[in-house]
Design a protein around this nucleic acid. Structure first.
Lengths: 302, 302
DNA sequence: TTTTGGTAATAGATAATACCGATCAAAGTA
DNA sequence: TACTTTGATCGGTATTATCTATTACCAAAA
């Protein structure tokens, strides 16, 4: 049994004429006759009672044709699912982002995305890099906005932008009078960090060339889980820190007691990427998504 | 798209393993891989996200698999319709019978048929020969119990039995004292007949060698539409008539005023047949039906 | 680091079959 | 009688589903 054969079957049942049915199905009449005959033999039932001049549907043929119609309908649904919903933008795209990025980046592109591609809906998740990687590999996410390269061959990336780290120091700090702050200026400072699971911590450690075993400059590992908290601690004079440029851009970190400023430290940036499974089939959706993001970025990042 | 391919699709979706799915479908793994790949290309959508180690169903794949399942269900229904209901006895058999036969023959076989083949249900129709032939050719009937041969190549017959004509004469008729009544005895009698559309009339005319244009023996054409009425007329002394043996057997024609008896007239019988379209596919049902009839006949017919 | 086991994908050959054009046989029509 | 229309049949061709053998790849074990 074959879907094509069932089309022949229904065509004959509607035309009651093998030749017309054949034309409708774009095959020759012998082909259609043969396939109907084959189908009848396979089913072990006569579907049409036919003479040289007339074709009649048998009762059992009538029943079978009913089910055949349902099959053809379902097949048509499948084809349309393939062809129309084939639009890779359609359907929700499940995106994750790390904590130090999500609150500042998402508001930037959401409106624009909705405006330019209303058919592409996002399901957003916020988690740490490790958690996002796991969800990616478990197919719970389609893409993840990370600041670290993909950790395996099974994952690929689209590089989005470089995000410099800005310096946050108390207003009453002696930096306030300096035009520029350089790497060497940081050596004697306490640099406050987020807890270890945030990738930002290690990146700042690297940027500042801090040796975490250096006893002369113990790093206070605070359990601050958000940049907001961290900056509040800076305002209280517990130390200084580096924050990603986008978090400054939003204005949500600003307080009277903290200065947020650029620094001239080489490699003091992180690179934000969209990471996804190499096997993920809707690359076009990822492309659109990343293009939107790159289009709405402020000058502070590149 | 192909029903077989959809089976592959569902098998993979359930096992999430191409090799296992292939074994379940009794094909090799490359075959299954190839067909899935072909299906994906045809639909223009990725149904499975797969690496060398894992297989995942995509969201659109999930949708399509749902419809594929429905198709497989329907296909299974069609196969079972073909194979189980393939039993040619199943399903109603639409049978017609002429007026002079139906009331007397049907009661004879109905119980036996229901007993021996409860799965074979009858839809009975009573009409004249011409009407039954039309219904046969219009596929409104599957078979007709007639007393005349099939009138065309498109119809065939199963001969069932020969039914002699019995004589019906008034009790006070001079035949009453004769041991036997022969053809010559009928010459001077008024032979009552049913109306013309009943084939019985012409058969009796032929049997009695009556010349319908013979003025010395005018045939009273009564509009009697039933044998009962006809016999009542005989009882009233209007003439004699011949009736089929089965109608006597039932006892429903018996009245005090009429004698029903065998006659020794050559060819005074009719042959009852089951007539059907040569193209009718359920010959087995017709065979069973006619065998039942032949098995329940009384001795008066052969 | 190499080996082993298991996965899906690929290549090449073969068998099954869907298809077509030409033709036939039967039946109705001019 | 000749012509048309019908579904069925036949022989050859092109497609394709299938197989075996193999490859490429990855992960876990040695």
């Amino acid at each position: 049994m074959n879907i094509r054969d069932l089309e022949y079957l229904v065509a004959v049942s509607e035309t009651l004429h093998f030749g017309q049915a054949a034309r409708r199905c774009f095959v020759s009449q012998p082909t259609l006759s043969g396939q109907i005959h084959k189908l009848e033999q396979e089913l072990g039932a006569t579907l049409f009672e036919r003479t040289n001049r007339s074709v009649h549907v048998t009762p059992i043929g009538q029943k079978i044709i009913g089910h055949a119609r349902q099959i053809l309908e379902q097949a048509e649904v499948i084809r349309s699912l393939g062809n129309t919903q084939n639009d890779p933008l359609a359907g929700p795209l499940r995106i994750g982002a790390i904590h130090t990025l999500s609150p500042y980046l998402v508001p930037l592109f959401m409106l624009e995305l909705q405006h330019q591609h209303p058919e592409l809906s996002l399901e957003l998740t916020e988690a740490t890099t490790d958690q996002l990687i796991i969800k990616l590999r478990e197919h719970q996410l389609d893409g993840a906005l990370l600041a670290t390269p993909p950790p395996g061959e099974d994952l690929d990336e689209i590089r989005l932008f470089k995000e410099p780290f800005w310096l946050a120091h108390p207003r009453d700090h002696h930096y306030y009078n300096k035009d520029e702050v350089s790497l060497s200026d940081l050596k004697d400072e306490k640099v406050l960090l987020l807890s270890q699971e945030h990738c930002l911590s290690e990146q700042i450690i690297n940027a500042c060339k801090i040796d975490s075993r250096d006893v002369s400059n113990p790093i206070p590992r605070l359990n601050a889980s958000s940049l907001e908290t961290l900056v509040q601690l800076v305002g209280m004079g517990l130390g200084v820190t580096l924050v990603p440029a986008l978090s400054v851009h939003g204005g949500r970190l600003a307080t009277d007691r903290v200065i947020l400023r650029e620094v001239r430290i080489p490699d003091a940036f992180r690179e934000v990427r969209l990471v996804y499974r190499t096997t993920f089939p809707r690359e076009a959706a990822l492309k659109v998504f990343s293009d939107i993001i790159c289009g709405v970025l402020p000058n502070t990042v590149t």
